[in-house]
Amino acid sequence: MVGAEITPFHFITLGLTLFFIGICGIILRRNIIFVFISLEVATNGIFLIFFGASLKVGYISQALVLVFMAIAAVEVAVGLALAIAIFRTSKTVNVDEVSQLKG
């Protein structure tokens, strides 16, 4: 697998590793800022997966990476606005303590 040439397989495996690290961060951390940082790590993994696919299928996959970058920017903007709103109302950044929506 560690050959002379870099194949889509390398990019996809690296992207899956980053995605896994990000999902572990989302599950294990309690600070809401770190949840968003882990989400960004996972998003970067997705970029790498689609970029690796673009080595095989061409430009469409790479243009999809651009679309995903814009979606990730939207997600971060809305998410951090929500984080500030949560911090204003409940004065905490611990996601376990924010449980007003529990039925």
Binding site: L14, T17, L18, I21, G22, C24, G25, L28, R29, N31, I33, F34, I37, S38, V41, N44
Partner: peptide
């Protein structure tokens, strides 16, 4: 570099 920095990013105490 990307794997090490992502592990460091999710394991720090200060945001």
């Amino acid at each position: 570099a990307s794997i090490i920095s992502s592990v460091m990013a999710i394991s720090r105490r200060q945001p």
